[in-house]
Nucleic acid binder design. Sequence first.
DNA 1: CGTATCCTTGAAGGACTTCAAATGTTGTGG
DNA 2: CCACAACATTTGAAGTCCTTCAAGGATACG
Lengths: 250, 250
Amino acid sequence: MTLETQSIHSPMIAKLETLMRLTDEERRAVSELPMNVRELREDHDIVREGDRPSQACLLIEGFAHRYQAMGDGRRQIMSFHVPGDIPDLLSLHLSVMDHNLGTLAPSKCGFISHQNLQALMRAHPRIGDAFWRDTLIDGAIFRAWLAGIGRRNAYARIAHLLCELITRMRAVGLQNGNSVRLPLTQEEIGDALGLSTVHVNRVVQQLRADGLITWHTKVLTVNDFEELKRAGEFDPTYLHLRNQAVAAAA
Amino acid sequence: MTLETQSIHSPMIAKLETLMRLTDEERRAVSELPMNVRELREDHDIVREGDRPSQACLLIEGFAHRYQAMGDGRRQIMSFHVPGDIPDLLSLHLSVMDHNLGTLAPSKCGFISHQNLQALMRAHPRIGDAFWRDTLIDGAIFRAWLAGIGRRNAYARIAHLLCELITRMRAVGLQNGNSVRLPLTQEEIGDALGLSTVHVNRVVQQLRADGLITWHTKVLTVNDFEELKRAGEFDPTYLHLRNQAVAAAA
DNA sequence: CGTATCCTTGAAGGACTTCAAATGTTGTGG
DNA sequence: CCACAACATTTGAAGTCCTTCAAGGATACG
């Protein structure tokens, strides 16, 4: 139970700032939230289907994903998570996990007890509203993926996903010019978008050939964001970022 | 602004009972919630993408769906809604709608102002929690659809959807033995599952030929629920119904 | 009873998958 | 710092599930 410096809480504060304008008082309360910090290796399951968590996990560093194992051994990835996200916040009100949550890269996680989260929300109702809002944005992202998998071809699907990840990472300050560190394999992209690895590969090569992206050694660079957005029919409204200007910026 | 008898509030109470056990006091508060009741024709848009609602819509009778229009004129349906649902509850915390909400059948809707909803939740925090929980279950349903569209073939997808609808309608008392009134066309099923109408038709015929269902004149009858669940890999956990026994019952 | 909507059927084509194998990259221990 | 294993990307070829196009029946409703 470490009560640490600002650094481990700052991704959470950056994330909350995308949801609401924090007062100094609220910022202080968040930065005093007791967290149990742990380093997790790549491909570690944080919570599993069937679990009944008594705490939630703040991703401080690294990359995570939600997924479900299918009957035939395949899997469906339902979301990717970046630092600042609390992917299992839903366990506050959904006692049994209906999916798995795991890391995709070596990660640092801060575990916060449900009790402490409840206390924070009681003391600061606007933060409680922001948490609810965050789970609703999660839902909006699921809907956007649904539209992609259901009605877009592989090219548009992949373009859309890359736009989303860039935009979300940019919103919490994780970009580097037009580049982001994306520790995703093509297999994972496929498992998220309902595509085979082989086909993801061919389409990614097409995106490269079209001059839209460079993607090498886990670093994705967008060379033509406008065209990538057009290709993926990407409209950032569904991310409901407080500062839409940030989201819209090329 | 009608303050009506129990009948118009009862679908909402039935729905809340699937989320929590209501006290008499809470039941009374819900049944006194001011609602503006309107009859809506088939295929009427209740709220549209870009709207900023100041009220939420309780579906009292009928059938509704959430959908998004795609660039090429096709659409993706993201959820179906049955009486008791408040499909745009998310507008409480997401000011701009990122999708459309419309009826699929002649429907009766009760419009409740955000103010009155907020007041109800302030006076009865457990009801507020139940509402949050309900929006989380919405999200769980999106994830389940994601898994279906991403990783299951048409046969399993359709079987899964039918299991879900039957289970949800059963939970609020809308079943009739093994039958439910399902005012969905095969085209709408296709738009929900990312399939063409033609293919939906062929697969539905297969489901009939396999003796799993009868589906005629908007009435769906499940002849072999166990087999239908197996075909769709359906596990009702994700619906997070308070009384799981209800959900599991054949 | 006519018209719109929905369901059904056949045939051809396409987007994506599967299988199989080669090439490239990363990390680890000697 | 090289060798080697494990993993990720890439390529080719064949096959499949589903789509598209086109048209004929059935059903519902004013």
